[in-house]
Design a protein around this nucleic acid. Sequence first.
RNA 1: GGCUGGGUAGCUCAGAUGGUGAGAGCGCACGACUCAUAAUCGUGAGGUCGAGGGUUCGAUCCCCUCCCCAGCUACCA
Length: 520
Amino acid sequence: MPRFFLTTAIDYANGEPHLGHALEKIGADAIARLHRQLGYDVHLLIGMDEHGQKVAQTAEAQGVPPQQFVDNIAAIFQAMWARLGVRYDQFIRTTSPEHKAAVARLIEQIFAADASLPENQRNFYERSYTGLYCVGCESFKQPADIVDGKCATHPTRTLEEVTEHNWFFRLSAYTQRLKQLFADNPSFLEPESRRNEILQLLEQGLDDISASRSRFDWGVPFPRPLSNGDVQTTYVWFDALPNYWTARFFPGYADKAAWPANLHVIGKDITRFHTVIWPAMLMAAGEPLPGQVWAHGFISLGGERFSKSAGVKLTLDEAIERYGVDAFRYYLLRDVPYDGDGSFSWERFEEVYNSDLANTLGNLGSRSVAMIEKYRAGVVPAAAPEAELFAAHRVSLAQARAAVDGERRHRPNEVIGALMDVARRTNEYIQRTQPWVLAKDPANAAQLDVVLATLASSLAHCAAWLAPVMPDKMQVLWTQLGGSGDVAHARLDKPIDVGGWHVSKGSPLFPKPETPPAAT
RNA sequence: GGCUGGGUAGCUCAGAUGGUGAGAGCGCACGACUCAUAAUCGUGAGGUCGAGGGUUCGAUCCCCUCCCCAGCUACCA
């Protein structure tokens, strides 16, 4: 059984989960579930990035010890993932002893490699860093952040020139090897638009980066002191990024999280870290590289962008409560192309819910089950589905397959599109064959058998393929059709035989709300 | 400023190595049907394919200029 180890970005424990977090996790969850149903041995890693100055500051502002603060945030995130049906296999936290020990291990691995290199080529070296420091932000500012000689966010403060002595990582030495990586393996980073940006960056050449910092201590102590004896704190690159690699050092995960991962799912804002710094670190440590980095787009709300640090304008609770978790997952995955940006609006949500879920899919389920009950006492005839219709269905399913692990991989919205084609085509088929007319004359019994078997089979495929998107609702549909057990165990790469299944009509899968929802 | 990708029906988008009538879904209008969640099916609506110029027998798709949008341009994560 092929394994598929995928990760999502670990979320910064500085606030509550919002729409942007949800998009990434739901997308990764759908990708993971699709792979499970295609027979992969899947390991989905999710977690929290809990160190750094901001977390320490926020905790202090709330008068809480930092560990207690991040424990609380982590619990909130995990509760949200549970609520959203995000089924991860491992939840990693950078404050875990296992992670901290493994970070030190990775750094030591690089030092070990350095031992055989001439001094001017060693990955880690000490250097003074001089920059303009904003007291307001408590961080160094880059030229882009500076307006008229002042920090853009604290224009009343004076920027101070501050010098720090740190451990540095010789990122500049990897420019050529990274170029080679992208030349040899273009799909290392997708989508292509993001890859182009990184290639451009590499053309400009890379600067070395800090590996340790002195101004905060909420983090992993850098394993080696500076020559002056100071022990500094491991900087974010060497603390957060390695979580994908340190996951296997947690008890019970040595095999499941065995390095390398097949896929890193990240937001487009952190592409550079994952496709330049992270591979360089791994090269320095002599570790294999992850299979692929997939940089998804963002979702906006009324034109305002969501990011990890943006304010919350829409609570996930509101979005979930409107039409239920599964409808929310469907809407996000269907309307936000994973390789592009999308926007959230209540009007659009309602439109998608009514059109796709209630009218096309939900109603197809209702009418099909009703007819099987009415005309065949609830038993799906053991006839072969109609050949021509299924030939068309198979084309759609092949497209869906390609959107999982084929040419168009990691595009859940295309899986959804293909299955909606199946549903629409099946509705047309009903209209064309008019089973209610066939049912009036017993001479048409064989023909009616074919039609009803075709409907049940079409729906079973919809349920199986859309289960990764809407786990609960598709389980209900599957059960209504008479499918046994867990729809999540239905294989997508094998035919589904529905002959003899006992259908049972329930309440509508996607009921329309009694009163129209409030406008945005 | 530099670089990259875009600007196609009301909305979200697909598409053509340049050539009979430019497509899909949704929304809308009209018609059909009744198995079904007043659902479904069919038909239609006529969008200067961002603006101007050029190449060509012919461009929305090629070239040039311009306008607009998004992203990237490296130590908050």
